[in-house]
Structure formats: C-alpha cells, structure tokens
C-alpha cells in the first residue's frame, strides 16, 4: 500500500461559520494505481490533491504515506518525504521562467543534492526519453503549451517518484496535445508509476483505473 487517508477533515472558519473543504475522506491507494479525481468546481478535488501531496495540511484525521504518519511529522521531514517520492504536474505547467528546459529539469536533483555528473546523466536521459533534446537550451516562454507540459512531466519524473500528482494536466492544452499527454501518463503508469490526476473530462478520466467522485468535499 502506498498511502492511506483515514477520516480526513479540512475546514476554514469564515464569519463564525465552519466551511468544510474536505469531509471525512477515506482513501487507500495501492502502488501502480491510476486514479482520476472528478467533481464539479469547488468540490475539493485540488484540495484533496494538495493534501495528498503534503503541500497543504488538514484539521482532523490520519494520513499514512509508506507507513509514515504524515499528520504527526515535522514540516522538514514532510518536505523530505514528498521530495523523495512525489512529483507534481500542474495545469499552468509552473516551470521556472528564468531557467532553461535543461535547468528546470535539473532543479529537483539539486534539491536532492545529487552529484554533478550523475545529475547531467539523468537530465540527458530525460531529455532523450521525452524527445526534447533540441529544446534543452530554450526558456519556457519559447515553447508551446504542450511542450511546456511535457517538460513539466519530465521534471516531475526526473527524481523517479513513486507517485505523480497531476492537477488538470491537460486543462490548458488543445485536444491533440491533451491526448498526447494522457497517452504519456498511461505509458508511465504501465511502467509502474502511481498516478493521481484531477480532471473535468470523462475522456481523460477513462485513462485511469479508478475514479473518485467528490461533491462538496465528500467522496460519493
């Protein structure tokens, strides 16, 4: 088992009222799964993804990731955990504008303090695998949306995470680019990477092995 959420509640207080973002979420994810989270706007999809990604906290409940109790870990320890095992892919790609494709790919490795020669080799591998060797010295602004997302996924993959969290990865792409990306995810999943994606599209959700539906912070 990769991770387990038990009775997760998340809320904010607004004007004396408690507004629930997540309500009693119970979820088990096995390694190798490809899960699609669906639901209308504001149903808590992204929040759930952020909680799983440890970018966001929660008020109640237990979260176990690879047998580590995330809810009782210190900030730094938690950061080490997701740095090691989780890769993020965003709808707006979120590449560092000031860095070239190559440097963007290198960044997570720098944070993992991987040695220079090894780093170079891993970046070269990844450029090769995604067929973007020719683009390595370009800046994000010089790429198309699909290409940027390709780099985004490559960056998420470079530190060989066990889990990829993708928040509407095709939301800003046209349909053919979107299909390409989804095919890529499928292929990655086949290679053993666990994937959780948030999506609006039934078609994209169909790439996955399981669908979770959210409504007003509750799993249905």
């Amino acid at each position: 088992m990769l991770l387990q959420l038990n009775n997760i509640f998340k809320w904010v207080n607004s004007g004396g009222q408690r507004i629930f973002l997540l309500k009693d979420i119970n979820l088990e994810v096995q390694e190798g799964e490809f899960i699609s989270v669906m639901g209308p706007s504001g149903s808590g999809k992204s929040t759930l993804l952020n909680v799983i990604g440890m970018l966001d906290g929660f008020e109640e409940g237990e979260y176990t990731f690879l047998d580590e109790p995330v809810h009782s870990l210190k900030e730094k320890h938690r950061a080490n955990l997701y740095k090691e095992y989780i890769g993020f892919v965003f709808q707006q790609y979120h590449l560092l504008d000031d860095l070239t494709v190559q440097e963007n790919l290198e960044m997570p490795l720098l944070y993992k303090k991987i040695k220079g020669t090894e780093r170079k080799a891993m970046v070269a591998d990844m450029l090769d695998r995604f067929n973007i060797v020719g683009k390595k010295d370009l800046f994000p602004a010089q790429l198309s949306g699909g290409q940027q997302q390709l780099v985004g996924i490559a960056r998420a993959l470079i530190s060989s995470p066990k889990l990829i969290l993708a928040d509407e990865p095709t939301g800003n792409l046209n349909s053919s680019q979107g299909e390409e990306i989804m095919a890529l995810f499928k292929q990655l999943n086949d290679e053993g990477v666990t994937i959780i994606q948030v999506t609006h599209s039934e078609k994209n959700a169909a790439y996955g092995s399981r669908i979770i539906n959210l409504l007003d912070g509750r799993m249905i």
Binding site: G53, L55, K76, A79, K83, G87, H94, L96, Y111, A156
Partner: peptide, 12 residues
C-alpha cells in the same frame, strides 16, 4: 510563483 514551484519540487 517561483517560490511555490520550488517548494513543490522539494525545496526547503
């Protein structure tokens, strides 16, 4: 945005 990205890819 840069801070957010860096944190999400593992920066302390």
């Amino acid at each position: 945005k840069e801070v957010g990205i860096r944190k999400s890819i593992g920066s302390h």
